[in-house]
Computed example of a mutant assay.
Amino acid sequence: MLLLIPGPVQTRPEVRAAMAQDIAPWDVDFQRVYARIRERVLVIAGGTPGEHATLPLQGAGHFVTEATIRTFVAPGAKVLVPMNGAYAQRMARLAREAGRVVVELKLTDTRGATAADIMPALAADPDIGTVAMVFHETGSGIVNDAEGIGAALRGAGRRMILDAVSAFGALPFSLAAHPECDALVFTSGKCLEGMPGIGFAVARIDRTEACAGQAGSWSLDLSDVLAHAKRAGWGSIRFTPPVQAIAAFDVALDLYDAEGGQAARLARYRANTDALYDGIIGLGLRPYLAREHQGPVIVTVHQPADPRFDLMSFVEALKRRGVLISNFYNTAAPTMRIGAIGAITPDDMRRAVDAIGATLNEVLTKAA
């Protein structure tokens, strides 16, 4: 089965094989693996040892995103969220339900946010201390300008939290170059092509320690994750971790390095996206985004206007041809979400396009 969703992604056999073992989280050998992963992630994030730390947390990306908001935004404080996609909406909800005051900046979901969008809102409200932003929005496929927005925030003395769940490991961003960024967050099952089950915040140590006590949750307090590591060692984990997913992630990082790291991973994903985007147009379908706004992770496609088309029926029929895409969409207009990341190649994407074309013909003919 060719899995074309924006995460959890299709993985290599070596990654899956690493999970076929029983592991004690306190075992010395495993603790070495866990400590090594933290160091390797820090390098990918462009962090500085002693200045930044990798702070893992069990669960999905929403868990570590909420933990980051709780840790770095004080209760009752204002946080601005650029609202240009479904995952920005989720970030805003996480912040609001944690008791933070969310300022929503309404933007279109057909292009990425820039500093020109953000800064007027900050100038109008000096009480906004932090911008929390999704780097790559998999609702539509746009990429927000984290580099430019971060630089503008630094100049204005504001802070940033970057949700890089669908970007980390592919899109470049260096924490060392962005001291305004309190933390960037990501998960194991996206662009680094590991298994799902663990989230990571790569955070400034000084800010994490300065924000101790304001999370309002023991489980979701990144300052406590840091304090535990300093007390018990970087190979030690609070609570029971997804040990098999961590073992698999170590192998996924080996494969990432062997491929050539961030630049090589991004190049392959861009080639996947180009093959998919061009193929979709060749089928007579219409991508949701203009090419200049198309990110390298997912291609969102307008559903056929034909009233006989039904998304769920189409997804099930396509699955019978060996290709699985999302059976839901996150845009106002009816669309189809087709992922371009994971252990896949442009040839896989061309094969998927052929299957999509044949399946469309099948389901529309049957519905006639």
Rank of each mutant, 00 (worst) to 15 (best):
Q31A: 03
A332V: 15
T11D: 00
P172T: 10
D127Q: 13
A18I: 10
R207C: 00
V43N: 04
A367H: 14
D163V: 02
A123D: 12
A124Q: 13
D306Q: 12
T300M: 11
A176C: 04
A201R: 02
I128V: 14
V301H: 13
G141N: 11
A88Y: 02
V64Y: 07
S188F: 03
Y87F: 11
S223D: 00
T240P: 12
I69V: 15
D348H: 15
V165C: 10
S219N: 08
A95V: 09
C191T: 03
G322R: 12
D250C: 02
I338D: 03
T71D: 02
Q244H: 14
M19Y: 09
A164F: 04
I5E: 11
L107Q: 09
N272T: 14
E209Q: 08
I246Y: 05
R238H: 11
L192Q: 03
P82R: 10
R90V: 06
V225R: 15
I69T: 06
G76D: 06
F239T: 14
V353P: 08
R38S: 03
P346R: 13
V81H: 10
G213S: 09
A121Q: 10
G213M: 08
S188G: 01
C211D: 00
G150E: 04
L107I: 13
Q10I: 08
V41M: 12
V28F: 10
A53M: 04
Q214A: 00
G46F: 11
D206V: 07
G157A: 03
A263F: 07
V165A: 07
T110A: 02
A258W: 10
P296I: 01
A164V: 09
A121P: 07
L3N: 06
V323N: 07
A60K: 07
D354M: 12
M195E: 04
P126E: 11
G7Y: 14
A305R: 15
G7W: 09
Q294W: 07
T187H: 08
G169M: 04
A45T: 07
G199A: 04
I281L: 15
V101G: 01
G235S: 02
A77E: 14
M83C: 05
V251I: 10
E180L: 06
M349D: 08
T65R: 10
V251H: 01
K366L: 15
G139R: 10
G61Q: 03
G85T: 15
R36S: 12
G295H: 11
N144D: 06
A343W: 14
P75E: 01
Q89E: 12
L226H: 08
A132P: 02
